[in-house]
Amino acid sequence: MHDFNFIQPKSAAAAADALAGAEDGQYMAGGQTLIPVLKQRLAMPTDVVDLSAIPGLAGIEVSGGAVRVGAMTTHAAVAASGAVRDAVPALAHLAGLIGDPHVRNRGTLGGSIANNDPAADYPAAVLGLGATVVTESREIAADDFFTDLFETALDDGELVTRVDFPVPDAAAYVKFPNPASRYAIVGVFVSRAGGAVRVAVTGAGPCVFRQAEMEAALSAEFSAEAIAGVAIAADDLNNDLHASAEYRAHLVGVMARRAVAEIA
């Protein structure tokens, strides 16, 4: 990898300043995606701004009907959290499916959603639970946060500090992993809160998305049968070495039905 300046600010403001002052700066949270990318020289930032020394960015709190997870909280911490398991077991389950145990000990929620890999797991939970992404300057609704392939609503230098996941009545995440990378070929997160149902799909398209037809059908009748007839168009789905768009479309249906069946 190319060499870079390593900066370890002690506050969010200092981090933003460091990034702003860099010729080509890059935030690093847990580094589990960024470091392999740097090693392969696919990115060559002049400055890496490490977020691990900023106090208050890690931690889990369940209050006011929400699970509040600090941006620098590791996947392992979420997976192991009794509070998360009690409040939203699907969220803990999802965190435990990311990467592998070692990656989960370093990788963070904030890093994952800010990167917005199309096959990452966390975006499905954020969108599937209708979470709120909190930055140092504002709150962004999940529906507005994930905008495109590796793109989010974050401004340059804007730092995710926390994600607030509302506690649903029930939720489930079912994932069909890539056998090599462990990323999702397709992952579907389904939640039900009152009459509202959310179905968020990761891995299938260029960016995590909600499946409106399934949500409508499940709002009317929450059962796997209710969405058996929903046809998923392959047109806009990913088509690559690991899976064709048609297969991904098929898997969206299967994973969604299985997620619903877990809840129903």
């Binding site: 890539n178 056998p179 090599a180 990378s181 070495l241 690991h242």
Partner: peptide, 29 residues
């Protein structure tokens, strides 16, 4: 079940050129 060294016929690139793309069996396989 999973291993496959695949070259893209148009470009001649090895598209399974990393352990992210070339699947080796793991313990749970």
């Amino acid at each position: 079940l999973m291993e496959n060294a695949v070259y893209d016929e148009a470009s001649g690139q090895l598209v399974t050129g990393s352990l992210i793309d070339y699947a080796l069996p793991r313990a749970d396989d």
